[in-house]
Every structure is written in C-alpha cells, then in structure tokens.
C-alpha cells in the first residue's frame, strides 16, 4: 500500500492485484532477480513463469481444509446414528450422488468424487468473498505482504486450472469410449451431412473449445464481479459517516445475495462438469 497513492483507482487496482512471485524481466530495476511483483504491471511483465502465491496458498489451503474435514467424517463413518458433522457430510455426499446419478448415465467411479471435490472446494473458495475485503490483506500488510487476493476463484488461473483438467478428462474419455475415429467422426459428421465435414468440424471445434472457456470464465466472471462490487462498496467507507453507513447496509445486502451466488456458481461448475463428462461417455451418435 505504501508504494501507491491512496486514491480510489489505486485502491481498486491494489485489491485486484495478486501477490505474484517471479523473475523480473529485462529493463526492470531488479532485472534478473526473483521476487514479488510490486504492481500489476510488474506481474504482467514477469510472463508465464511466475506464480500467484496468494491464489495458490488459499486455493490449496481451502482444498486441504475440505479434504481434512471430509476425511474426518469418512474415517468415523459408521452405520450407527450419525453425529452432527458426519450427518452434514453425508447430506452433501448424498446430494452430489443424486446429482451425478441424475445427469451421468454411464458407469465411472471417478465422476462422483470429482464432482464432490469441485463443489465443496469451489464453494469454499467463493466463500472467502464474504470476508470483508480489507481485513485479511490488512493483517498481511502488517506482516509486510504488499498484495493479497484472498478469493482464489477471482483469479482466472485458478478457474482455468479447474476447467482445463476437466476438459482433458472429457477429451480422454471421448477418445477412450468412442475411439479416436468415433470422436473425430462426431466432430466432423454433425450437424450437417458428411460432405460438409469442414463446416461441421469448424462448428463442433468451436463448440468444443468454447466449453472449457465458458466453464472457467463463468465462475471467474461471477466471482470477479462480486468481488468488484464488494471493493466498490468498501470505497464508500471513506466517504463520511452517512455514506459509510449506507455502504454498510449495501455490503450486508450484497453479502446475503452473494451467499446464493457462490453456492449457485459452485453447483453450476459441478453440474457442467458432470454433463460434459456424460457427453464424453455417450456413444449414441
């Protein structure tokens, strides 16, 4: 914070910048050194071989939290009357199981755990959005951390990092179930007759590529927009008592509405994953 002037645009920019670790490029004052980017421009200049430390830490941390909590329930799972936490976990597991049974017609033991992981993990990542935007970055700044984005799902790297493995799974199962010829045939011979194969290939190719894009950008866009609104509301706290009180009211309202959004986005991401994988398993065409 200290390096930037405290203006509205500076505040917003600061909140939208990841804590990026990478190698400073040529022409920079720290050229050739590894370190944390001081600004969004620095992060941009670091190129591909840099890492958003905050996104990675929060994402992995929340994932491990999810695995730990559910593993605890899984270890103590008995056929007796379930306790509170176990009951909750079983409720979620049954919900996922029902969703998977409803949308996924083939037999694959991987889909349900995949869906469970995606749903709970994305939900937890989105949940970070409900923590007031300044609190954790402020704590971190006391420890000397310049930038911190605590909502991993507002980082496109994270959402693409989820959507791309799903996309590769779709490709893998498409080829495995239908054979390479079958898969390519599906791309080339629909929706028009065979002699229009190039047109078909173009259309189906775009559809195929659009899937991971829309899959990840839907989550990213929703969470990014939600985060942005929280930041804008937080700006109002600097505008006097009346505006601040109004901002507090707005933040409460938006947070309550956001509970719906974060759950819905996690559910949509999971459902789309199931549907895409189901399509990969369909041999009907």
């Amino acid at each position: 914070m200290a390096t930037e002037p405290l203006t509205a645009s500076g505040y917003i920019k600061h909140h939208l910048t990841n804590l990026t670790f990478g190698k400073f490029p040529e022409g920079h004052e720290h050229a050739g050194h590894w370190g944390y980017a001081h600004s969004a421009a620095d992060a941009q200049a670091m190129g591909f071989w840099a890492i958003n430390v905050d996104s990675m830490l929060f994402s992995a941390g929340l994932g491990i939290l999810f695995l730990w909590l559910f593993r605890k329930a899984a270890k103590t799972a008995t056929t007796d009357v379930p306790g509170g936490w176990q009951n909750f976990v079983e409720w979620i597991v049954e919900f996922i199981d029902t969703s998977v049974r409803g949308s996924f017609s083939a037999k694959n033991d991987m889909v349900a755990p995949l869906a469970l992981t995606l749903f709970v993990w994305i939900f937890l990542m989105n949940l970070m959005d409900l923590i007031a935007v300044d609190h954790i970055p402020w704590l971190a700044s006391l420890l000397g951390v310049s930038h911190l984005k605590i909502v991993p799902s507002t980082d496109p790297n994270i959402t693409f990092g989820l959507a791309l493995p799903v996309f590769f799974l779709v490709l893998y199962y498409s080829v495995k179930i239908k054979g390479l010829g079958g898969f390519l045939g599906e791309l080339a011979f629909h929706p028009f007759p065979k002699w229009m194969a190039p047109v078909n290939l173009l259309l189906e190719g775009v559809t195929l590529i659009a899937r991971p894009l829309s899959h990840s950008l839907r989550l990213f866009g929703n969470m990014y927009a939600g985060e942005m609104i929280f930041i804008l509301i937080a700006l109002m706290y600097g505008g006097g008592v009346a505006l601040g009180a109004f901002g507090g009211l707005l933040q409460l309202g938006w947070a309550i509405f956001h509970i719906l959004i974060i759950t819905l986005q996690a559910f949509i991401f999971m459902t789309l994953t199931i549907v895409y994988l189901d399509m990969a398993h369909q041999e009907s065409h």
């Binding site: 990841n18 958003n52 996104s55 990675m56 790297n157 990092g161």
Partner: peptide, 16 residues
C-alpha cells in the same frame, strides 16, 4: 496467465 494455472491443475488432480 502464469504458472498458477499449472499449479492449480496439479493441486486439483491430487485433491480429486
């Protein structure tokens, strides 16, 4: 985009 993408993908696969 940067290597976070790869990191997240690997984390994701391990978690699943």
């Amino acid at each position: 985009f940067n290597a976070t993408l790869i990191g997240q993908s690997i984390t994701f696969i391990v978690f699943v």
